[in-house]
Design a protein around this nucleic acid. Structure first.
Length: 471
RNA sequence: GGCCCCAUCGUCUAAUGGCUAGGACAGCACUCUUUCAAGGUGUAAAUACGGGUUCGAUUCCCGUUGGGGCCGCCA
């Protein structure tokens, strides 16, 4: 079997026991990309065999996260709906005496494990009842009668040959009972039943692979290709988790990251195209991606790089696109935005180069919709000591703006005169107080742009208010 | 503890036997500039260590060290 002769089918198999996590999202992404560029199928399989911990809420979160990133699946399975299939294979293996009922309690097993570890032996259970034919009983579980002698060897597409001694596996568990398969068993069955050609998953599954191979072999299944991706690490270089801050994918959406940026970021963690390009579209990824170029070592999650990418993607958005994406982050200004879409478009265009995340829009747009409050000191630029000067400039600007027609209030009309005055009197000394008077902030876009958006009436009113601070 | 995986600037990475070890993010400096952002220019910063192999090792081999993962009736 070679990659060129098989139909490429990859899968992403999350368990709905928590929200979709960045690391998982990346595994899904790599699998998805690999299937798409080989015109294969991408299968989504929900691993909800653990009824206790599985929750439909998380399943929903996972589906939503994948859709957000644009990762679409061709087939969908839920393990809890496939119990008949697992039962069939379990019975088959039971009849072949490849699996058996093990009567040991969890407590006994824990004790045994402890003792073995103390003796520096692999903490595995080799069941004394493996040759007996015990029957089903709520106390018993099904274990694999592991007699494998030779090393289990598989060729990982990213790491090369990997070798395991089967002895360290012991008689591993495969199911709690005929209707409750355990992870490794369900995976082996499903990967084969759904004809998965390439299992692309996180490095944390390397040590599960020999168990799955043993089950495949007992069942006479064909072995898929394996590719184990490096982990995404937190700042402390341990597996990324909740304690490293936002780990859930959808949280990044809430924080105002663009799906395109997150996607680009995720693919860059562990993979890089031949050239030095860092920003690319899905089409470009599909064209260039190759498993051989995937990194082997874990990659530390770096929010600075994500922020940079997000800024880059925001800058590329045109004003209408940005403004509509920004709407859900507008908060209490939502109604004003809808009332005056033209004004909103201009605001969005101004914010474009200043946003790292969409969520920052809320605080950066307030002064366009409500009158800012500030103290007189704000109007003083740098070393400016003279209040008279500020008053003079503001008064000049007031009379300047006053003479322009409210109906033709665009910056092209008045910017020339504003700048002529600024150049004559000193830009900083004049433009700073003007900008501060209009925005009420130390930092903001250009006063001319702000004046245009505010309109004649509001511009004059704010200037008047600033002037009044001096009387 | 056992087994497995990994190792280039702070971080993500390029260079798979041959230029001065390249790029990006972050940092710093300068520049542009009314502020912020963006932009421009520049700068500092790495092959973990020790042995081999070789005319020549980031690259191949061995060892050491370090980091990570897994060791469930979770997935």
């Amino acid at each position: 079997m070679t990659a060129s002769t098989v139909k490429i089918r990859t899968r992403f198999a999350p368990s709905p026991t928590g929200p979709l996590h960045l690391g998982n999202a990346r595994s899904a992404l790599f699998s998805f990309i690999f299937s798409r560029q080989n015109s294969g199928q991408f299968i989504l399989r929900i691993e909800d065999t653990d009824l206790e911990r599985s929750d439909p809420v998380f399943e929903k979160d996972i589906l939503e996260g994948l859709k957000w990133l644009g990762i679409n699946w061709d087939e969908f399975y839920r393990q809890s709906e496939r119990l008949d299939i697992y039962e069939k294979y379990l019975k088959f293996l039971l009849a072949k005496k490849v699996i058996f009922w093990c009567p040991h309690s969890e407590k006994e097993l824990a004790l045994e494990r402890q003792a073995k570890m103390a003796k520096k032996e692999p903490p595995v259970h080799i069941c004394p009842h493996r040759d007996e034919t015990l029957v089903q009983d709520p106390k018993n579980i099904l274990r694999f009668r592991n007699d494998a002698g030779e090393n289990i060897v598989f060729d990982d597409l990213i790491r090369g040959r990997i070798n395991f001694s089967p002895k360290i596996l012991g008689d591993f568990s495969v199911a709690k009972n005929l209707r409750s398969p355990l992870y490794n068993f369900a995976v082996a069955v499903d990967d084969s039943e759904t004809k998965i050609s390439h299992v692309i998953r996180g490095e944390d599954h390397i040590s599960n692979t020999p168990k799955q191979i043993l089950i495949q072999e007992a069942l006479g299944f064909q072995r898929p290709f394996y590719a184990h991706l490096p982990m995404i690490l937190g700042q402390d270089r341990s597996k990324l988790s909740k304690r490293h801050g936002a780990a859930s994918l959808l949280e990044y959406r809430k924080l105002g990251y663009l799906a395109e940026a997150v996607l680009n970021f995720l693919i860059l963690l562990g993979w890089h195209p031949k050239d030095e390009k860092e920003i690319f579209t899905m089409e470009e990824i599909l064209k260039e991606f190759i498993l051989d170029r995937v990194q082997k070592g874990g990659a530390v999650f770096n929010i600075d790089k994500l922020n940079w990418l997000n800024r880059e993607y925001i800058k590329k958005l045109d004003a209408p696109d940005l403004s509509s994406r920004l709407e859900e982050y507008a908060g209490k200004w939502t109604r004003q935005i809808k009332n005056d879409p033209e004004k909103w478009l201009k605001i969005a265009a101004l914010m474009r180069e200043r946003l790292t995340t969409l969520a920052q829009a809320g605080e950066n747009m307030a002064y366009f919709y409500e009158e800012p409050y500030f103290s007189k000191e704000l109007l003083f630029w740098k070393e400016e000591q003279n209040a008279e000067n500020i008053l003079r400039h503001l008064t000049y600007f007031y009379s300047l703006f006053e003479k322009f027609d409210e109906k033709e209030w665009i910056k092209e009309k008045f910017s020339k005169e504003v700048m002529a005055y600024a150049d004559k009197e000193g830009r900083g000394w004049t433009l700073w107080p003007l900008r501060a008077a209009l925005s009420g902030r130390k930092t903001s876009p250009d006063p001319i742009d702000i004046a245009e958006i505010l309109g004649k009436k509001e511009t004059l009113s704010r200037l008047k208010k600033a002037i009044s601070l001096f009387s």
